[in-house]
Simulated scan of single mutants.
Amino acid sequence: MHTLFEEFDDYATRHSADEPALLKELDRETHRRTTQPRMLSGHFQGRILSMLSKLVNPKAILEIGTFTGYAALCLAEGLAEGGTLDTIDVNEELYDLQRTFFDKSPWGEQITQHLGSALDIIPALGKKFDLVFIDADKENYPNYWEMIVPLMNKGGVILSDNVLWSGKVLQEVKANDKSTRILVEYNKMVKEDPRVETVLLPIRDGLTVSRVK
Rank of each mutant, 00 (worst) to 15 (best):
N187C: 11
D193E: 03
E7F: 15
E172V: 13
S179K: 14
A175V: 13
G83W: 09
L49E: 02
G65C: 07
M1Q: 15
V149C: 11
E81A: 13
G69P: 02
S179E: 14
L183H: 06
P20V: 03
A17C: 08
E6T: 13
Y141Q: 05
V169H: 08
S117L: 01
Q98G: 00
D86H: 15
D18F: 00
G206M: 00
Q98Y: 12
K104W: 00
Q110G: 12
D135I: 10
E197T: 15
P202M: 11
P37F: 06
I111L: 09
K54C: 00
I134F: 09
T30D: 10
L125P: 03
H2K: 15
R28W: 08
F5T: 15
T87A: 06
A136Q: 06
T68N: 03
G126P: 01
I111F: 08
G42H: 01
P37W: 05
L119A: 11
S105W: 03
K154I: 00
S179I: 12
R38H: 13
M147D: 08
V184D: 06
S117A: 07
L23I: 02
T3W: 12
I158D: 02
G65P: 06
E19L: 02
G116E: 05
D96P: 02
D96K: 09
V199P: 14
A124I: 07
N91W: 11
V90S: 10
S179W: 13
D177E: 06
L22R: 09
L40H: 07
L75E: 01
N176G: 10
D161L: 01
K168C: 05
E77N: 06
L125T: 06
P142Q: 10
D193A: 02
V190S: 05
T87Y: 03
L183V: 11
E6K: 13
K138H: 06
D120C: 13
K188C: 10
D9P: 12
I203R: 01
G156H: 03
Y11E: 05
G167R: 07
D9A: 14
F8C: 12
A175R: 15
E19M: 00
T100C: 03
D161E: 01
I64D: 05
D103W: 09
D10H: 14
Q110A: 15
D103A: 05
K178D: 13
P194H: 07
T34K: 04
T180L: 03
R181L: 12
D27K: 03
E6Y: 13
E81G: 08
G116Y: 06
Q36N: 10
G82D: 00
L170D: 15
T180N: 02
E77V: 00
F129V: 02
F5W: 15
K128W: 06
K104R: 13
G206L: 00
A60C: 13
N162I: 02
Y70A: 05
I61L: 09
V163H: 01
D86K: 08
G46F: 01
Q113M: 04
R211Y: 07
E197S: 15
L40M: 13
F101V: 03
L40S: 11
K138Y: 08
G155V: 09
V209G: 00
P123F: 08
T34L: 01
I48W: 04
P194M: 03
K104E: 08
G167T: 10
H15F: 11
R14L: 12
L23T: 04
E7C: 14
Q45I: 12
Y186A: 11
P194W: 02
L164N: 04
E19S: 00
G206R: 04
D205R: 01
K138D: 04
R33L: 10
N91F: 13
N153Q: 07
